[in-house]
Design a protein around this nucleic acid. Structure first.
Lengths: 233, 233
DNA sequence: ACCTGAACACCGTTCAAGT
DNA sequence: ACCTGAACACCGTTCAAGT
């Protein structure tokens, strides 16, 4: 259980951020940051399947059950890891003349950070993003959009659309990149051609390589930003 | 292993669709459809955590290890379940005058289907969607976009953006709805207000209720479709 | 071709006990 | 306040054996 008991929390993902953090390295050898860092490393090596409390504890030179002083569940670890990835988003430069350049910069930065950790896109899609680093970036997006003229429900909707498009896109990209990438694409293409009667349009598509991802992302982002611009008038 | 051996497949999600299906109910009591249906039911009841091969087998009146004749892994079950959800997307009506109405209809239908099964958004985001039902719907989207004038890389990008925005959005929505929905939102709001110094823009937001989701979705969809329209010129 | 049954090597989580 | 150690009730997956 967490140090300050939190009135019987339901097992909601993201909840770790709403509980108070035990004082960093008061005396013990563990703290949230060390745990988050080791968790990211483990996930980078083998994805969610490789993240077990026992191996994580081993890395930290501690017993598996010790982790329960700092986190309430394995799910908390995933929340910590995702927020650490958000912390990798490049710091924004000075505000551009056009608000959409600022938002585009954020979207590209988020994509890069999530792609660096192929497990993170799917996880970011699956849980509320309430960590301090995620909130800090959200704050900046809200500010940019506010400056652009969005307010009220339109502001919330625009910010959500921006994040959700990036996260959804990266999750899909990471899912394909899995490993046998080229083989998978080849098998897929063959499968579609074999059923050209059922999927004529899909079967007619060329077998595009992985080099198509960035261009695809730029196009999708351009469409969304243009549409948001149009909504402002 | 699957009946027709498939040359040492790597453990890639989505791969079940590229292997041949054992003849439906040749003599045994199990087949892909029955397994898919029971899997969806189990996931509806308790999410991914509730899906174990043993309980699933129990529902089907069979031993856990019997499932391995029909699927290669637990992951295959998730692929089957997600594709079943895509099968629930409402059939499209006759083509509208405006292509974007057709695409909007698809997006709303996909959102509804995914929301009916709160586990499915996150799963759809995390794996290639190669099932027959998912491909059938993709085929229709491609056809609509082609009719609108998209071709080549622009066509692929547009189709991907459409799906990824919906899936990303629904995954986020489902993650929030988890259960203590109102409590979670309340706690979140309180947390933001408590750190108004760090997140001034976020702290200033009103505590919106769950009724805001559909409107938010419509706004995001409108922005994307408008932007795609603009890209055509 | 399809299902059984035993077995392997793990899991996350609890709780009382230590310091 | 923080970590240990034993224990509980599970997992997914394998493989030889049945029919």
């Amino acid at each position: 259980m967490s140090p300050k008991k939190a009135d019987s929390e339901p097992p909601m993902p993201g909840a770790i951020w709403l509980r108070s953090r035990p004082p960093a390295r008061a005396r013990g050898s563990l703290d949230r940051d060390a745990i988050a860092c080791a968790t990211v490393a483990l996930l980078d090596e083998g994805g969610p399947a490789a993240l077990s409390l026992r191996t994580l504890a081993g890395r930290l030179g501690v017993h598996a059950t010790s982790l329960y002083w700092h986190v309430a569940s394995r799910d908390d670890l995933l929340d910590l890891a995702v927020d650490a990835v958000f912390g990798e988003i490049a710091e924004p430069g000075p505000p551009a003349r056009d608000w959409s350049d600022d938002v585009a910069e954020f979207m590209r930065g988020l994509r890069q950070a999530l792609l660096r950790h192929p497990w993170s896109g799917a996880l970011a899609a699956s849980r509320p993003l309430l960590g301090p680093q995620a909130l800090e970036r959200s704050e900046l997006v809200y500010a940019s959009l506010q400056r652009a003229g969005f307010a009220g429900p339109a502001l919330t909707a625009a910010a959500a659309a921006v994040s959700n498009l990036v996260i959804g896109t990266v999750a899909a990209e990471s899912a394909w990149d899995h490993d046998g990438e080229t083989d998978a694409r080849r098998a897929m293409h063959h499968h579609l051609r074999a059923h050209a009667d059922r999927y004529p349009a899909l079967a007619a598509l060329p077998e595009s390589g992985a080099d198509g991802w960035p261009e695809q992302f730029e196009r999708a982002m351009d469409a969304l930003l243009r549409g948001l611009q149009a909504q402002l008038s």
